[in-house]
């Protein structure tokens, strides 16, 4: 008998759910840079109300990446291919953990070049060739990293600004790239 109208009440639910689609324009771009599935996994492990955990991981990643780039620069000037391959592998791992696809792919290439292989790791290349390729690749990785860093920093600063009620939906909402 009573209360039929109340069923129609919950517009809030729907609205919350549609929100994620707002950022669609940039979604294609950022998914190239960032593997959302991996990154969301990090976010899912955050506490309900803040991002301390994922943020600390990302910030540690930044630190680690900066150091690694310095080491890469040095190894390149020393023409130390083995070290370059090792560093490539190292940064590849942590980039993959965050889901930074572009940086990861480039690091993988550096790993191969360092082993004096081509970018797929199948054909051998000369040492000279390898060094040349790495020096241009290193610049590219750094750019890609900067891009990722900006993106992530924006993401978190937006997060911090956003109303807390949005946090439950953090999985879906995609911050916009402001670079």
């Amino acid at each position: 008998m009573p209360s039929t109208p109340r069923v129609e009440d919950p517009p809030e639910v729907g609205r919350n759910r549609e929100e994620p689609n707002d950022g669609d324009g940039e979604e294609g771009y950022s998914s190239d840079l960032l593997d959302h599935e991996t990154f969301n996994q990090l976010l899912e492990m955050d506490d309900d109300v803040d991002h301390d955990f994922s943020k600390s991981i990302v910030w540690h990643y930044f630190e680690q990446a900066e150091t690694t780039f310095q080491e890469m620069d040095k190894a390149l000037s020393d023409e130390n291919l083995v070290e370059l391959s090792k560093l490539g592998h190292f940064l590849k791992g942590s980039s993959a953990a965050i889901g930074l696809k572009k940086v990861k792919a480039s690091c993988e290439k550096m790993q191969h070049y360092g082993n004096m292989k081509d970018e797929t790791g199948t054909e051998s290349i000369s040492e000279e060739d390898a060094l040349k390729k790495i020096s241009s690749l290193l610049e590219k990785v750094k750019e890609e990293y900067k891009e990722a860093e900006t993106y992530l920093k924006n993401f978190y600063s937006e997060r911090d600004d956003t109303d807390n009620t949005k946090n439950t939906d953090e999985k879906d909402s995609s911050p916009t790239e402001k670079d």
Binding site: P2, S3, T4, R6, V7, D9, P10, E12, V13, N16, D48, V49, N164, T165, K166, N167, T168
Partner: peptide, 22 residues
Amino acid sequence: QVSRASIDQMNEISQRVQSLHN
């Protein structure tokens, strides 16, 4: 209908409640 409404509302409430500070 009542209970459906209740669920909807509970759903929403819980969402909101969850998102609020403790």
